[in-house]
């Protein structure tokens, strides 16, 4: 009954001469929330971008529901890193969320009132309706992240890719985002999240994928989220600092 949504086979990718992904293979099942974790430069964002065709792949194959990305892209939502766009751009929050509907509206058509309502509903879900007509440059970092999430919700996709949605946001935004992710999961949607905070992995995610240029471990959080897997993924020069049940990693060498 749990069918695979994503098949990744032997995927590799590089930036100029640096190979950042090597023989990456994994499958993701429907209705799961997976955290992609790994050290800086492990290729987490590159993995997502390569799967979505935003970065060229060297080898390998990625399929969604057995189809190519091109055939499946209408059912896929993407939340880029907040820092990837210029927030000085002259537009308001509602307008950014409406962008999530452009694919459905069709090119060279003007968004209708109904589209604006849909966008407004997505903003409401993120608790942002009172900021609908606020300039995006005047939003705080957490609010900007919520706008990005709302845009993805407006897309009404089956599968979501999110690049560090919890990076640098305050506690209430983190809570709001996690509530939405759980809601997506209970609606049978599949979510992949690039994540940096190991401490919250067991609480937030039911699956975890350890990545450092290649896949070190992947599976249900209860089974694979172990000290051993964390240590091997983050490199041999890391050592554990036990603080109760908190996961803290320190580098012993520089």
């Amino acid at each position: 009954m749990l069918s695979s949504v994503i098949h990744v086979d032997d995927l590799s990718a590089s930036y100029q001469k640096n190979k950042v992904l090597n023989d990456v293979s994994f499958e993701v099942k429907k209705g799961t929330i997976t955290a992609i974790v790994g050290p800086n430069g492990a290729g987490k964002s590159t993995l997502i971008k390569t799967m979505l065709g935003l970065h060229p792949k060297l080898t390998g194959n990625v399929s969604f529901w057995g189809n190519s990305f091109k055939a499946a892209k209408k059912k896929i939502g993407y939340v880029p890193q907040r820092g990837s766009v210029d927030w000085d751009f002259p537009t308001d929050a509602l307008d950014v969320v409406t962008m999530g509907l452009y694919g459905k509206i069709g090119w060279f058509r003007i968004p209708s009132k109904k589209d604006k309502e849909k966008a407004m509903n997505a903003l409401k879900k993120m608790g942002m309706e009172s900021y609908a007509h606020r300039q995006i440059s005047q939003l705080s970092g957490g609010q900007q992240q919520r706008v990005f999430l709302a845009r993805a919700l407006a897309q009404d996709a089956e599968l979501y890719f999110m690049d560090e949605p919890l990076a640098g946001v305050d506690a209430s935004t983190e809570k709001a985002i996690m509530t939405i992710l759980k809601e997506l999961k209970s609606n049978g949607k599949t979510v992949l999240v690039v994540h940096h905070d190991l401490q919250t992995v067991p609480e937030y995610f039911d699956h975890v994928l350890f990545l450092n240029k290649t896949v070190y471990a992947h599976g249900e959080t209860e089974e694979v989220f172990t000290k051993d897997n964390i240590a091997t993924t983050y490199g041999g020069d890391m050592q554990w600092v036990g603080k109760g049940d908190q996961y803290v990693i320190q580098s012993t060498s520089h």
């Binding site: 971008k49 979505l52 993407y78 694919g103």
Partner: peptide, 10 residues
């Protein structure tokens, strides 16, 4: 504003 997202939606 967001060419990556634009590409993602076709």
């Amino acid at each position: 504003f967001d060419p990556d997202f634009a590409k993602g939606i076709g």
